Amino acid sequence: MSKLIVRSFSLSLDGYGAGPDQSLDNPLGVNGTKLHGWAFATRTFRKMFGQEGGEAGIDDDFAARSMDNLGAWILGRNMFGPVRGPWPDASWKGWWGNNPPYHVPVFVLTHHARDPMEMEGGTVFHFVTDGIESALRQARAAAGNRDVRIGGGVATIHQYLRAGLIDDLHLVISPVLLGKGESFFAGIDLPALGYRVTDRVPTPQATHLTIVRE
């Protein structure tokens, strides 16, 4: 059966999933790229973005597994782009160029309607205006027996956690401090929501946590 999952979601030591002041110049917020140093070094992530080389090892194993058996993604609007309010036109097509790294249907949560957008490589962005449950229904229908991955951001993951809809999470704690930004744990009581840590794997670049719903 299809699961709803979070994979390779990076956090700082002080619990932030993105830096402050996200913008066109800083899509992950100020200093937000520091969260993903472990990922940028891996063979898997370099291949995803058309680059050669990269490191093998534990971090790469987790990165590769994060892409296994995916049939659809769900993104918050901020993850898709910096445009706020009604879409002024169809010119913004995401951060990733004409061939985004998803290669499956992607469902973007938004309050403002927009026609689906087909990209190269099999990615089709669908814009969902009627809530998280609708996005999940559509994503599961598209995914079939494969899993649906929530790409973020923090607010979107929070909504699905509070609704008890996420089956398990892979969080990656990077050895950096941001001081401010989007706090992952603020207002979220994971034990009360039925989640527990089942595995912890440290590497020189990060600590990988597996969290499941009981």
Rank of each mutant, 00 (worst) to 15 (best):
87 W>I: 05
144 G>C: 04
139 A>D: 01
12 S>E: 02
187 G>F: 13
106 V>N: 03
16 Y>D: 01
53 G>Q: 01
8 S>P: 01
33 T>S: 15
144 G>K: 12
74 I>Y: 02
201 V>Y: 08
70 L>W: 02
122 G>F: 14
171 L>R: 10
190 L>I: 11
83 V>S: 13
211 I>S: 09
137 R>P: 00
99 N>Q: 11
20 P>D: 01
49 F>Y: 15
76 G>K: 03
130 D>K: 13
111 H>I: 00
185 F>M: 14
125 F>G: 04
200 R>T: 13
200 R>I: 14
70 L>A: 08
9 F>T: 03
122 G>E: 09
142 A>R: 14
56 A>P: 00
92 W>D: 00
8 S>Q: 13
94 G>V: 02
41 A>Q: 12
60 D>Q: 06
212 V>C: 08
129 T>Q: 00
1 M>P: 07
117 M>W: 05
76 G>N: 05
55 E>D: 15
139 A>P: 06
70 L>F: 03
201 V>Q: 15
196 R>L: 02
95 W>S: 09
7 R>D: 02
180 K>G: 13
193 L>E: 09
200 R>G: 01
204 P>F: 13
55 E>A: 15
136 L>N: 07
12 S>G: 09
133 E>P: 00
72 A>P: 04
59 D>S: 14
144 G>A: 10
6 V>I: 14
27 P>I: 11
14 D>I: 07
20 P>M: 03
131 G>H: 12
102 Y>N: 05
31 N>H: 15
68 D>V: 10
138 Q>A: 08
191 P>M: 08
71 G>T: 03
89 D>T: 09
89 D>M: 10
211 I>D: 00
178 L>H: 03
52 E>R: 10
196 R>Y: 07
31 N>C: 12
199 D>S: 15
32 G>V: 07
75 L>C: 04
159 Q>L: 12
160 Y>G: 06
35 L>D: 01
203 T>H: 08
134 S>L: 03
12 S>T: 05
14 D>W: 13
92 W>K: 04
